[in-house]
């Protein structure tokens, strides 16, 4: 099922969304990602029982921190889909990209580029 989605989505593979650490999400944002989403299995379908439910809580936790430090919790998200839902993945990828584009580049990335003396006006990547 070859459906189109924006090129700016890049996937980091982990064995289970339960392995997604709060720190992974934090570090990705700290390194300048404009947004991060966790794609876990459907609720109730976790191969490892409840890894996706843990991931959901961790995402919520990170959202709260990002809101409080002014980076914006809406830049991280949790989605649940099954391995058979290719179109859904593409839909999520588009949805997330549109959301992030509307928010603009992450303030971290803008600041980092500014500090490095590079242009900061390009759209969210």
């Amino acid at each position: 099922m070859r459906l189109n989605y924006p090129t700016n989505i890049k996937i980091v593979k982990l064995p289970c969304s339960g392995r997604v650490d709060i720190l992974h999400l934090m570090k990705a944002m700290e390194e300048g990602a404009d947004g991060v989403f966790v794609a876990g299995c459907l609720e109730g379908d976790c191969h490892y029982q409840a890894g996706n439910l843990r991931a959901k809580k961790r995402v919520a936790y990170v959202k709260e921190i990002l809101d409080k430090i002014g980076v914006g919790g809406e830049r991280v998200a949790m989605y649940n889909l099954s391995a058979g839902q290719g179109p859904r993945f593409a839909e999520i990828a588009r949805e997330m990209t549109e959301k992030i584009k509307a928010l603009g580049p992450s303030p971290i990335r803008i600041a980092k580029r500014k500090a490095a003396g590079r242009p900061t006006t390009e759209e969210a990547a």
Binding site: I22, L23, M26, K27, M29, E30, I65, L66, K68, I69, G70, V71, P107, I108, I110, A111, K112, A115
Partner: peptide, 13 residues
Amino acid sequence: QVLASALRMYFRQ
């Protein structure tokens, strides 16, 4: 680590 990361992001922005 989580707090340090959050603070770094805060300072950076």
